[in-house]
């Protein structure tokens, strides 16, 4: 087996010397496709990540006319709970709201000296369970909360959430499209390259046949070649993406809000899947092409 691999690898090297511009083109196509795909995937995964983290702080705030008396609080809590399980329900009085505001303003605290807690409305803060944190269910929940006695208005950042939802959706579409591009471009280029190799080697293949080369002897190097392009191309694409990622993080940091979100690179499992998937794709493309162009 080792001896056979040696001959096949020797052939791979030989093919490359004979046909390197095409092979390089094909490698670059694989690299570029992987780069484009993984670039959008990286953005998408980070956005989803941010969304999840923001989701953890998600709450519905029901602003009330009047404070709820402590005796009534369990009643209201249980009424809310009958509609939807909540992780936490918090009753915020005017005084508590005022203290929070003071904390938030800290240095400009004196702004509030002339004001009392009276101008702030009391509220109920509902932290819904994880399963409730999707857009339509939130909306229904908020409609329900609006029917509570004394409720004036329910807020949960609907506009922002909606936009964020659309954005994620758009990204998902782009990821799928660039994935399709990856499949098409890679499969096409790899099979084209193999076809060109076969054409360039036509007389050589004929003579190999005449001296008794098995199909395996002839096909194995081409198959190796496809696999090699998959492994190298995808690794190179991901390396480039990593370089871009690092560069962006160090140079675009600044003071923008981007800096405050921590973003991460593709996890190892995803990179492994991209490399594995691309390699399989290339192997498949080369097999198809070999079958098609080397009818014996």
């Amino acid at each position: 087996m080792g001896l056979k691999s040696y001959f096949h690898l020797k052939q791979v090297g030989h093919n490359f010397r004979q046909n390197w511009p095409t092979q390089l083109m094909s490698l670059l196509t694989v690299t570029l496709s992987v780069l484009i795909f993984s670039f959008f995937l990286l953005i998408y995964l980070n956005v989803v990540n941010i969304g999840a983290r923001l989701g953890d702080e998600l709450r519905l705030v029901v602003y009330l006319d009047n404070e709820v008396e402590p005796a009534l609080q369990p009643l209201i809590s249980s009424k809310i709970s009958t509609y939807a399980k909540a992780d936490k329900i918090l009753f915020v009085s005017r005084a508590e709201a005022f203290i929070r505001l003071q904390k938030q303003l800290e240095k400009e605290k004196d702004l509030l000296t002339d004001l009392g807690p009276e101008f702030l409305p009391p509220s109920i803060e509902v932290y819904p369970e994880k399963s409730f944190r999707n857009f339509t269910r939130l909306k229904e929940f908020s409609d329900f909360l609006a029917t509570l006695p004394g409720a004036q208005k329910v807020q949960y950042g609907q506009e922002w959430l909606e936009r964020f939802g659309y954005f994620t959706e758009l990204l998902r579409v782009i990821v799928v499209l660039s994935g399709a591009l990856l499949v098409l471009a890679t499969g096409f280029m790899v099979s084209c390259t193999i076809r060109l190799t076969v054409v360039a080697k036509e007389s050589e293949l004929e003579i190999l046949r005449l001296v008794g080369a098995s199909n395996r002897y002839i096909q194995a190097p081409l198959f190796f070649e496809g696999i090699l392009q998959g492994v190298l191309g995808s690794s190179l694409g991901l390396t480039l993406l990593y370089a871009i990622f690092i560069w962006t993080r160090t140079h675009l940091g600044g003071s923008t809000f981007l800096n405050q979100l921590e973003y991460t690179f593709l996890p190892f499992s995803v990179t492994a899947m991209i490399i594995g998937g691309t390699t399989l794709l290339c192997a498949w493309g080369s097999l198809l092409s070999i079958r098609k162009h080397m009818r014996i």
Binding site: E206, I207, L208, L210, V211, G212, N215
Partner: peptide
């Protein structure tokens, strides 16, 4: 047939050598 051909050496009237390969490489092929 391919296996059989490994046991049959043929000197072709038109040689059928690979002109880009050197003498040793051509001889080594079978």
């Amino acid at each position: 047939i391919q296996q059989l051909r490994q046991e049959i050496g043929v000197v072709y009237q038109d040689f059928k050598l690979l002109p880009k390969l050197n003498a040793a490489q051509n001889i080594a092929m079978p």
